[in-house]
Design a protein around this nucleic acid. Structure first.
Lengths: 208, 208
DNA sequence: TTTTGTGAATAGCTTCACAGCA
DNA sequence: TGCTGTGAAGCTATTCACAAAA
């Protein structure tokens, strides 16, 4: 079996998982690398190679069992368990994320939401009530929270990052458009929404 | 000068631009590839190579003029003009995007928001009032809108994509976790928030 | 000296193509 | 035959390293 999955392959695992969820919902039991690839605008070789980094899940002449492959990919991604998470910054975006149904259905559960604004504290959004950010470390420790979602203004991002890292968080989803410095044991996934629109702007401008 | 920028380089342009905006706000006039790289956890060679795909902006021994480089990058990305955009799907996420300040400050302006739910139609969110999706094509044509943001449930994504493409939109920011088929002249940028958390889950699981 | 711009070298990722299993 | 798993080949992206400019 092959080793050390390239990062792009790990990203595509989520893509495959999404499609498998649909197939399972449709009652499909088996899928070939060709079918999976076609519906995602990829090549069959890439699908097989990507899956090959994590194990041997297919049967020659048959394909992959949808349910078993979903389980295997969830295991590979680490989402075959529930991940507790906190949101810091309860502006419009933070509120939307707290109510977003795609997180709980995929095993991510918010156990706390924090802000500095007195006007927001005590309000209920989605599954949690907003608390002052000073309460964050206690909540993180109590629930053994490993993930934090940062939806704060860029000028607060580094300070908030320092605080969630100090509290013991191991991964940060960063919606602030400024890179944050974290200890090496903490993973960061930046999501810059304006940058995504800029990429579209570039592509649209480039086409003629 | 070098040609055909690799896609990763185009993505990093947004990153450089973000940092330059900060530097400009701080009153910094000049920056070297080394300084730029260090603050973004990249290498100086990569910064110079990336910028090199779009022109020669630096002065040996001096570095880059912050203001001039910002202008150049905005021009390269196509954001040295205003882009009109519409939002389809005014759930929590759609509302948050309509009110998100990072879009207008970077030249993206919402001129319409659409939904099918009668309860939402007529309500004001951010800069616009929600209209029925049947009104979308007229608004797109009237304002010559080139970009659409899809914040609809996955089962509606393909149908909505077909409709915005038919209306003449040229780029789609797709928040639905299902890939959409579009004509070749239309660019798509997928944003899968659950997938981003899955990537964190993977990385955190992988570290010991 | 400092720092850019860029060919050349290296590393990383994707596609090919085919042996082997069902 | 149909399809997987995977080495080998091909391609893309990053890093190196240095000539030239300020």
């Amino acid at each position: 079996m092959q080793r050390v999955p390239p990062n792009p392959a790990v990203q595509r695992l989520s893509l495959y998982l999404r499609r498998l969820e649909q197939l399972a919902a449709d009652g499909t039991e088996t899928v070939s690398s060709n079918q999976l690839a076609a519906s995602l605008h990829r090549t069959a070789a890439q699908v097989r190679k990507d899956l090959g980094y994590f194990g041997q899940f297919g049967r020659p002449g048959v394909g992959y069992r949808v349910g078993a492959l979903m389980e295997a990919l969830r295991h590979a991604l680490g989402t075959d368990r529930t991940w507790e998470a906190v949101v810091v910054g309860v502006g419009d975006l933070g509120r939307a994320l707290l109510r977003f149904k795609g997180f709980p259905t995929r095993g991510f559960q918010f156990v706390g939401a924090f802000d500095i604004s007195a006007a927001k504290i005590g309000k209920q959004f989605g599954p949690v009530r907003v608390q002052h950010i000073d309460e964050m470390p206690a909540v993180v420790r109590r629930h053994d929270v490993r993930l934090a979602v940062l939806a704060v203004p860029p000028e607060a991002a580094q300070d908030v990052a320092d605080r969630v890292c100090a509290a013991g968080v191991r991964g940060i989803l960063n919606f602030a458009p400024s890179p944050i410095d974290v200890p090496p044991r903490v993973a960061v996934c930046p999501v810059d929404l304006a940058a995504s629109l800029e990429q579209l702007s570039f592509q649209v401008s480039a086409m003629r």
